[in-house]
Write a protein that binds this DNA or RNA. Structure first.
Length: 801
RNA sequence: GCGGGUGUGGCGGAAUGGCAGACGCGUCAGAUUUAGGAUCUGAUGUUAAUUCGUGCAGGUUCAAGUCCUGUCACCCGCACCA
């Protein structure tokens, strides 16, 4: 027996694939295409995590299988290399970020190649390459020209340690996602992208794509569309206060109003408000609260009543008090609500604190005990012309009434906010606009792209919150492209998520210098047929890239409405202790070590065998051995190979079944059961003691997508040629079934015996056979026969009394 | 609080309403080996029991891990969104 030297074999085939460009993807419209995509990694100094190969191996399996099925396959990889960790490393070690990035990319590339992924290495993209971010900047300019990128003074999340603005998505539990320091609010002028203009389409078009359901649900909830009404309340100050509500049906129960502490009317009404100082003090206290305090501590309702101005409920003309409270957010709806304590939990809590009247307008609960918020069962009461209606009917009637009186309108609102798109950092794409004292913000001409990131003496952010670029006079000072007078460049850079919002397009045509990609290449390769990635990007990268893609579709740059036809998500690989893998826990597994000790094929097989692909799974060093043994036993098959080139009679149906099982399971990301099926077959082969040539060839092809090196080697050695030039196996449904099977015989649902029957035997014959079993005879002896059931090929159940 | 997910042997996990525990790890026994490791063979939910067993309590069914009602626990996300 030849020894299975995985180190030598894996190196040999990796070199072969690279030098022969085996997996090169060429645009060829005469062939049917397949585009599989994995999230390109951030090339950190730590190197590849064992989580990466879970996703990458799965899509590598699909890609390799598609090639065997005759598809022209695009399976690219690249590097999402802008971002804070590299910049922080640069600051600490005084090494230029570009140098660190190049070094990290080399390491990541080496690691990916050492696992044997069939990536298209001639299509690598790198978001920090000026030829790449040229087009990131170009897309920004198109958005700017279409009014989707705009500058706005706004309260932003400010990390006190990183000294940088964070997106809402980067704030976790009121702390910086990266450094875990406190996040406070700070007013700064920021670039914004108008993702909210696409909110409806980002929800509605989910119906057209094949994403796993939990991704769709998460995106829908994040966008948070709600249907309601805006209602105008007159005030004793003369101004109209507009509120947004999803429950206009409860208008008769509105006994007070709450406006956000930042609501502009407070200052407008300053001279009418006798307690303006109290109101201002409350507002200032609310602003000083960190995100942490606002969300975690003290959920008890607080507020201050406006003394001197009241609102008038439009349905009954009653004067009602107005409060300010930080439970009403200035950023959502109109920053003002009508409070219906009988039917809203928060309003009920507030009313209890300030002893405000609670009116029941929907019957069904006990509003003296808690708010009754159920919309489905209640009937309207104490509501004049709405009395007796259901909630749904009342919503329709009140809206009609409000519209006819000119007091309100239907309104749809979203939780989604526009995207804060500037960062006060060095290591990101420069924003290609200049500020001119005459013309305001002016776009750079496209001919001046890419606007290159200059070398700076220091990467340290400044204490006043400006980017390090702000210290570089030679970069800042320029001329206005419009009027030619002196102007200053924008010194903020784009966030981490910019480059990844369109990278899948660049893969189609990665070296194009005229456009982000040629129309021809995009029309051929797009959309992505299958995209797998982490759940953690559902409301970040995945949503952002759908937004950018829709914009590019609107301006005619791409011809599909959605970028990804299908999206799946893998579960996280946890440490051996069941917790998240992290340096601080000391439970990190380095893929390099596994490859050294067990080989790349074993790593791939183990990561696929570890459990349900979509569920989190704890790492286990001892379980890896089982996968290594499996491959060792595959290696040993040639020693028991016969010269016969057909399926053997006793394994024929087992092989057909396994081909079917593996083919189906791989498509459904059930690699664990596909591998189990091959292990079962292998056990049968060994207990039989021999395998035919055809059987071995079949098994190698089935295993090839999962363990490509060992299967290439065996195939090449035994059959000659290359397994990657083979064709995926087919099966015959009829041959998947054995002629005879063993089924259980139950009496009253309890198994009493097992009988072997012919697969095609009819019910009478099977029942007759069942009744010859001694255990069955004993169990039905002296009892009355109630019912006899035979489910073809499955089970016999005899019911007796 | 809201949304999503998960509860099955010592462990990871399998089961179109039809023999629960496939497959693998671990463990035990045997073979081989100077020994260890590796490998091979067999056993391995539980019970005195063909007894009981899929978080818990009910229900539907000839038949429930799977369907229905209620309930508990854990994990992940969001978090005063009117």
């Amino acid at each position: 027996m030849q020894t299975y030297d995985y180190k030598e074999i894996e190196k040999k085939w990796q070199d072969h694939w690279l030098t022969h460009k085996t997996f090169k993807a060429v645009t060829d419209t005469s062939k049917k295409k397949w585009y599989s995509l994995v999230e390109f990694p951030y090339p950190s100094g730590e190197g590849l995590h064992v989580g990466h190969p879970r996703s990458y191996t799965a899509m590598d399996i699909i890609s390799r299988k598609r090639r065997l099925q005759g598809y022209n396959v695009l399976f690219p990889i690249g590097w999402d290399a802008f971002g804070l960790p590299t910049e922080n490393f640069a600051i600490k070690h005084k090494i230029p970020p570009a140098e660190i990035t190049a070094r990290n990319i080399d390491n990541f590339r080496r690691q990916c190649q050492s696992i044997g992924f069939s990536f298209n290495w001639d299509r690598e993209v790198n978001t920090t390459d000026p030829d790449y971010y040229h087009w990131t900047q170009w897309i920004f300019l198109q958005m700017f020209k279409h009014g989707l990128a705009y500058k706005k003074e706004m309260s932003v999340n400010w990390c006190t340690d990183c000294k940088v603005v964070l997106a809402n998505e980067e704030v976790v539990d009121g702390k910086c996602e990266r450094c875990h320091h406190d996040v406070i609010h700070k007013v700064k002028s920021q670039w914004m992208l108008g993702i909210t203009k696409y909110a409806d389409r980002l929800i509605d078009d989910l119906d057209e794509v094949d994403y796993i359901e939990r991704i769709k649900i998460t995106q829908k909830n994040w966008i948070g569309r709600s249907y309601g009404a805006e209602v105008d309340f007159e005030s004793t100050a003369g101004d109209t206060l507009t509120v947004y509500t999803t429950r206009p049906d409860t208008l008769f129960g509105a006994t007070y109003m709450v406006i956000s502490p930042e609501h502009p009317y407070i200052e407008k009404w300053a001279d009418k408000l006798t307690n303006i100082e109290d109101l201002r003090a409350y507002r200032e206290a609310a602003a000083k609260k960190s995100e942490m305090e606002r969300t975690q501590l003290n959920k008890d309702k607080t507020g201050v009543k406006l003394e001197g101005v009241q609102a008038i409920n439009p349905v009954n003309g009653k004067n009602i008090p107005i409060f300010i409270s930080d439970y009403v957010l200035i950023s959502y709806g109109t920053g003002a609500i009508m409070a219906v304590p009988g039917h809203d939990t928060r309003d009920w809590e507030f009313a209890k604190v300030y002893d405000l009247p609670i009116i029941e307008v929907v019957k069904g609960g006990d509003v003296t005990q808690e708010a009754f918020t159920d919309c489905n069962t209640g009937i309207m009461i104490n509501s004049d012309f709405l009395n007796g209606l259901t909630v749904d009917e009342a919503k329709v009637e009140i809206k009609k009434w409000l519209i006819s009186k000119g007091l309100g309108k239907e309104k749809v609102n979203f939780k989604l906010r526009d995207w804060v798109f500037s960062r006060q950092r060095y290591w990101g794409e420069p924003i290609p606009v200049v500020n001119c004292s005459h013309c305001g913000w002016v776009a750079l001409p496209e001919s001046e792209l890419p606007l290159k990131l200059p070398d700076v003496p220091s990467y340290m952010p400044t204490d006043n919150g400006e980017s390090p670029l702000a210290l570089m006079e030679s970069f800042i000072n320029t001329k206005c492209p419009k009027c030619g007078s002196a102007a200053r460049r924008e010194t903020d850079t784009m966030p981490q998520w910019a480059g990844s919002s369109w990278y899948y397009l660049r893969y189609c045509d990665p070296t194009n210098s005229e456009a982000l990609a040629s129309k021809e290449a995009l029309d051929y390769w797009m959309p992505v047929d299958w995209y797998n990635g982490g759940m953690e990007h559902t409301t970040l990268h995945l949503l952002y890239s759908r937004f950018w893609h829709k914009f590019l579709y609107d301006i005619g740059a791409v011809s599909t409405k959605e970028p990804y036809k299908k999206r799946t998500a893998h579960g996280m690989i946890l440490g051996e202790d069941g917790g998240k893998m992290s340096k601080s826990r000391g439970n990190v597994v380095n893929p390099d070590d596994i490859i050294r000790d067990y080989g790349a094929d074993t790593l791939r097989t183990y990561e696929m065998f570890i459990g349900d692909f979509e569920q989190p799974a704890p790492w286990s060093m001892s379980s890896i051995k089982g996968c290594k043994r499996f491959l060792d036993r595959i290696w040993g098959l040639r020693d028991i190979m016969t010269t016969d080139n057909d399926y053997s009679d006793d394994l024929k149906s087992a092989f057909h079944r396994t081909i079917k099982k593996v083919s189906d399971d791989l498509e459904n990301l059930k690699m664990n059961t596909a591998i189990a099926a091959m292990m079962t077959l292998l056990n049968e082969i060994y207990s039989k003691g021999s395998i035919t040539k055809l059987e071995l060839k079949t098994l190698l092809i089935l295993l090839n997508p999962i363990a490509p090196h060992i299967t290439e080697e065996l195939y090449n050695d035994i059959f000659g040629g290359f397994i990657h030039e083979e064709t995926w196996c087919t099966y015959d449904e009829k041959l998947c079934i054995d002629d005879t099977i063993e089924i259980a015989v139950q009496i009253n649902g309890k198994v009493k015996a097992k009988i072997t029957i012919g697969t095609d035997d009819d019910e009478a014959a099977v029942l007759a056979a069942a009744k010859t079993e001694t255990a069955v005879i004993a169990a039905i002896d002296g009892k009355t026969l109630v019912k006899e059931i035979y489910v073809k090929g499955r089970i016999v159940n005899i019911v007796v009394r």
